[in-house]
Design a protein around this nucleic acid. Sequence first.
DNA 1: ATTCTGACGTGGG
DNA 2: CCCCACGCCAGAA
Length: 109
Amino acid sequence: MDRSDGFFKKVYETARLIPYGRVTSYGAIARFLGAPGSARMVGWAMNASHNLNDVPAHRVVNRKGLLTGKHHFEGTDLMQQLLENEGIQVIDHQVIDFDKVFWDPNKEL
DNA sequence: ATTCTGACGTGGG
DNA sequence: CCCCACGCCAGAA
């Protein structure tokens, strides 16, 4: 059916756990799921999550804090707008104070 | 079936 | 910090 059980579902749940005003990286989620080398699959799952509204994909960035996925959002600045709306400062598609707003599931959970 | 790509990450230089 | 090469697995052509 629509909900693939396993990896995808875990990605969605983890993404939902991201607190307000925080961001995480694909690799962090992938490692939390037990797939440290399959960070790409997290991004792929996010692409599938495009239909879901409970998955704040805009809070997920790459390890550099760069909004690599902004290209897949509507318009051209939507992802940045959402992050700034949460109090996250974003300049040139890059998250400022990334180490401060970074939320690591392995560390926080 | 094969081949390529892709919202990434890590390691070496 | 940058650049290059490899690995990872799912999906599309």
